[in-house]
Design a protein around this nucleic acid. Structure first.
Lengths: 128, 128
DNA sequence: CCTTGACCTTCCAGTCACTGGAAGCCTTAT
DNA sequence: ATAAGGCTTCCAGTGACTGGAAGGTCAAGG
């Protein structure tokens, strides 16, 4: 398979796939013409990476997860640890965003949004 | 005031303050020795920026908000528009994160986290 | 045989909002 | 005289791509 095929099948853009090779996440073969030649296993890895990234795992987490996936002697505890850390970060991010959301929603609500210059949003930013 | 003072008072690191000058958000005076010399108005702007950034506004949004703040002939509608757009993006981000959170929490929950290699997390990443 | 178009290749630069570090000047206190 | 601490500039790196340029390859049609 050429890169276009795996791009379509994995849902990842060719640029991203080349990038993943660059940083050592995958290692496809090369055809005589220099084109990357992807095996089923490569496609499988890319799909794995796509799903892990969609869950918000960092590239380094993905690298670790992929290694664990391929390591028969892994323990599920190792995997779970990574996932739990990541879940915590997601929780924190959500909490932060919700605070912004609350504050901002109140300000937007209080703002008339008309032709006049008076604006609680600006006032809040200006004076805390 | 020197940069250290405004850093402390605004809560922004000196590096960030220099960066904000670089990109034209502020324009402090210079003392004879080349040090930046901040007026009260500069500090005020920095505090404004700090609060806007804390609400998640992009630098370009901050620039626009600052301009509106200083423009007596602004309308609150202009301000509100920016805030509403940003609020929408926050909503979207939260929604995305919550989806991750749901999926991931279920997987973490299903994972034994023991010495065995079997792991629903990896299985889910591998097979969709 | 030639051309066209759709692939593919590499490499460089840009994104966003900083942040770290190096090299060197200025000020204050000892 | 020197040491500490604060200030300056400039360059490079962060994460995870993404866009674009310049050029090689391949299959189909004329």
């Amino acid at each position: 398979m050429n890169i276009g095929d795996v791009a379509e099948k994995s849902g990842l853009p060719p640029k991203t796939i080349r990038y993943y090779e660059d940083i050592g996440l995958i290692d496809p073969l090369r055809s005589a013409n220099g084109y990357r030649s992807f095996r089923a296993a490569d496609l499988h890895k890319l799909a794995f990476l796509g799903r892990a990234r969609a869950l918000g795992f960092s590239i380094e987490d993905c690298r670790a997860l992929l290694q664990l996936y391929e390591d028969e002697s892994r323990t599920s505890a190792e995997v779970k640890l990574i996932a739990e850390h990541h879940l915590q970060e997601i929780d924190l991010k959500i909490a932060g965003l919700k605070e912004m959301q609350n504050t901002l929603a109140a300000l937007v609500d209080a703002c008339a949004g008309d032709h006049r210059p008076d604006c609680p949003i600006l006032e809040s930013l200006a004076d805390g």
